[in-house]
Design a protein around this nucleic acid. Sequence first.
DNA 1: TTACTTGCAAATCATTTGCATCCAA
DNA 2: TTGGATGCAAATGATTTGCAAGTAA
Lengths: 147, 147
Amino acid sequence: MEARIEKIKQQLQSQGYKLTLQREATLRVLLEHEADHLSAEDVFLLVKEKAPEIGLATVYRTLELLSELHVVEKLNFGDGVARYDLRNDNNQHHHHHLICIKCGSMDEVKEDWLLPLEEKLAVEYGFTVIDHRLDFQGICAACNKLE
Amino acid sequence: MEARIEKIKQQLQSQGYKLTLQREATLRVLLEHEADHLSAEDVFLLVKEKAPEIGLATVYRTLELLSELHVVEKLNFGDGVARYDLRNDNNQHHHHHLICIKCGSMDEVKEDWLLPLEEKLAVEYGFTVIDHRLDFQGICAACNKLE
DNA sequence: TTACTTGCAAATCATTTGCATCCAA
DNA sequence: TTGGATGCAAATGATTTGCAAGTAA
């Protein structure tokens, strides 16, 4: 945890940004909730527990900044709020989402199944893939059992 | 065109909805711009040319309704506006998006590359896929040439 | 006739911004 | 010391909603 924060601190400083108390508190919340897909509001409420003075605007600004630095990934599941996922150490994101339309649960496939497709795009379409996003909507294993 | 409208009319009526002038004008705009990814505002302006009395709220309500009926697909490319795509006749959508981060163009791959993955999900995860979404961000062929 | 629809304006809700003040490096 | 950062409140922009009046079936 400390190592990851240190690393991000250096990433910030190399671009002329500062690691403020608020930014560090926000990062810690993100690290502690790595499995979730928190909205800015969610992050705000959690950070408030440690740093009550923080403002919502700061959280938005921090998340936007971390997003530009590819520390977090900004996601949109179509429910009207942006959600933020911490990326792994390489700042890569190679997982896909399984969104259950019955219970609303969201699971992840932590593998990258798209490399062959990205290859195909390069060859057949001349398109260089930098990032991708793959979500599946359907019925999760638990809900399937309930039927 | 008429046939598709007739079909959608029946789909509406079978659920107790009416095909009003406004809804028909909206459908015609969507049909005429099938290749685009129009926002509600875009649709509103285009419909206004044929039916000047229409209100923006009606366009939103119509698009929402058509989305529930799976006539259109509501998309979100992360630019703060929802966009709407007409689905094909089976109400299936089997295409993927190529979004260029240089020029902002959006291309489509009109094939479904995910069937093998959906099979894998069913077997390995017990997850029944109903719908999916796949977008690639990267550099398009045209921008690649300019380099 | 009678639900379902509409247009309008007002309301919501997420996100952004201006600005005076603050603080990490 | 000083340019980037913050908190607050106000502004913005997309989308939704209440309501009286309109209309397709």
